[in-house]
Write a protein that binds this DNA or RNA. Structure first.
Lengths: 167, 167
DNA sequence: TTAGTTGCAAACCCTTTGCGAGGTC
DNA sequence: GACCTCGCAAAGGGTTTGCAACTAA
């Protein structure tokens, strides 16, 4: 059974090698935002005949094909997630590195208006929040969570310095 | 007459060397978002006894002191601007690399609410728009510009590939 | 005088690439 | 068989750092 991403690769006419199949599987199963090193680690544990170079090449290729999206959460390394689950944004816990996804329907619309007002067509945008967990408040604990905002929560990446924070 | 940034350095107790004075001057006079290479070029033209390493060290120091803010507009190099003119955001012209600043008072408030809802205190956030100049519409041409949105427009940096755009 | 700063070059880190070998369609 | 892809190791590009000389306070 081909993984979801493997099917997308085939659809887009990519030659499916053993390595790509493994990387596609890893990506299909990832529920977080792994960087290349992490993808390599996961892929290599399934098939040790894979090199980092191939992971870099594959990830770049899939991004060009629109199958993957590259993210920059600071820290100097790119992180990836599959293009699929509708638009969402990220809140990064600056202490643990954990990434929380959330939706905000108003935003895209709002940004488009701003660009238009400035005389531009909006091609893309990015927005990340960096925060610290409120003391005495587990996420979704004080507020029953059921309002559909939290799409997912994961990623135990270690927090890093100099992460490009806006302030 | 010490430059604005030089005064801030002194206030913060930094030892003022000749190199720092020059870099402070360059930063004080910059009206764009130069990267280190550009800062070095400008500084070296005022005093050739400056090395890139010093620019890197100074810029990092000033950022830690809250005098400078580091920005990431994609392209892999950090860009800097003085902490001062109130909060604003950036729209990057993906064709020319030009950066347009704009304000959006609602945003910070909105983002803070989102973070709060997720159980976090908002420490910082970033948002960048990437757009293409609408054909037949010079910025502020079709719309008389007088609504106070455009704070500044400058930066002739060349556009770059793989610039970390969200989509 | 003393602790902090500089230039230089080497080191780092992430990512890309040239090349010959190997695989896919 | 033609063309693509792989692993390896080297190269790149931005940024940091060790060290000895130097300098602001």
């Amino acid at each position: 059974m081909a993984s979801r991403i493997e099917r997308l690769c085939v659809e887009r006419g990519l030659k499916m090698t053993g390595q790509r199949r493994v990387i596609a599987k890893v990506l299909s199963e990832a529920e977080d935002h792994p960087d290349v090193e992490e993808l390599y680690r996961r892929a290599a544990s399934l098939d040790s005949r894979i090199s980092v170079a191939t992971v870099y090449r594959t990830v770049r290729l899939l991004e060009e094909k629109g199958i993957l999206e590259r993210r920059d959460f600071g820290g100097g390394r790119a992180r990836y997630e599959a293009t699929e689950h509708g638009h969402h944004y990220h809140l990064i816990d600056i202490e643990s590195g954990r990434v929380i996804e959330f939706e905000d329907a108003e935003h895209e619309q709002l940004m488009r208006q701003i660009a238009t007002r400035l005389g531009f067509d909006l091609v893309s945008h990015r927005m990340e929040l960096f925060g610290r967990r409120r003391t005495g408040a587990e996420p979704g604990a004080d507020r029953p969570n059921g309002d559909g905002d939290i799409v997912a929560e994961q990623d135990g990446g270690r927090a890093r310095d100099r992460n490009g924070v806006t302030r």
